[in-house]
Amino acid sequence: MSSPSVRQGALLRGGAAALLTTALTLAAHALGGGGLPSGPAMVQLLLVAATVGATAAALPRTGDVRLMTLVLAGGQLAGHGILSAAAHHAHADPAPLWAMAGAHLAAVLVGAALICAGDRLCRALSRVVRRTLVHLPPPVSSAPAAAVGDADQPLFSALVLVSSLSHRGPPVAA
């Protein structure tokens, strides 16, 4: 069984992969002239993103840029396929196939590098925080201070204070 910090890192990677897949697919489709999808196409895109996120969280080596690139590329391919099939309208000015594939590939490579770099930074930061919290000294407990209450008469409180002072000390000749 993995430690909770490793599992949290995998969940963060999976969430980032799902969000990046959705954002890149929607942005590429909108920039390609297709507009934003609605209805069943959007639901299918969200299912693809959830699948990509779950895959990225479940695979143990998605901290590696190469595997994260493959997972994100698969998500982009599935998302592009869904939005292309769901688009019943023609794009106003379709981009050449090589330009579209190059833009998707560049976005996937940059996204995978950012997710993996963020994962490494998050692990390093949490290690530092854990080590710092382990070496904190325990809090010092102080004895409760004696409360001096108000007396009914001001002279009586002065007498109580004077009588509590000790007049003992070393002999005068010393």
Rank of each mutant, 00 (worst) to 15 (best):
M1P: 06
M1D: 10
S3Y: 04
V6L: 14
V6G: 02
Q8L: 13
A10H: 14
L11H: 09
R13G: 01
G14C: 01
A16P: 00
L19N: 14
T21V: 03
T25K: 03
L26C: 08
L26M: 13
A30G: 04
A30H: 14
L31Y: 13
L31I: 14
G33K: 07
G33P: 03
G33Q: 04
G34K: 04
P40K: 05
A41M: 04
M42Q: 11
Q44T: 08
L45A: 12
V48Q: 02
T51W: 01
V52Q: 03
A57V: 06
A58T: 06
L59N: 05
P60N: 07
R61M: 04
T62I: 00
D64Q: 14
D64S: 13
R66Y: 01
L67H: 05
L70F: 09
A73E: 02
A73D: 03
A73Y: 03
G74V: 04
G74F: 05
H80G: 15
G81S: 05
I82Q: 02
L83I: 12
L83T: 12
S84E: 15
S84W: 10
S84G: 10
A86T: 03
A87Q: 15
A90W: 11
H91F: 14
A92L: 12
A92M: 03
A92V: 10
W98N: 10
A101Y: 02
G102W: 06
G102C: 06
H104W: 15
L105A: 15
A106V: 15
L109Q: 09
V110R: 07
G111K: 08
A117K: 06
G118I: 02
R123L: 12
A124C: 05
L125N: 10
L125K: 07
S126R: 14
S126C: 10
V128D: 14
R130H: 09
T132G: 13
L133I: 11
V140F: 01
A145W: 00
A147G: 09
A147E: 11
A147I: 13
G149D: 09
A151V: 03
D152H: 08
P154G: 07
L155E: 09
F156H: 11
A158V: 14
V160W: 05
L165G: 02
S166L: 00
H167L: 12
G169I: 03
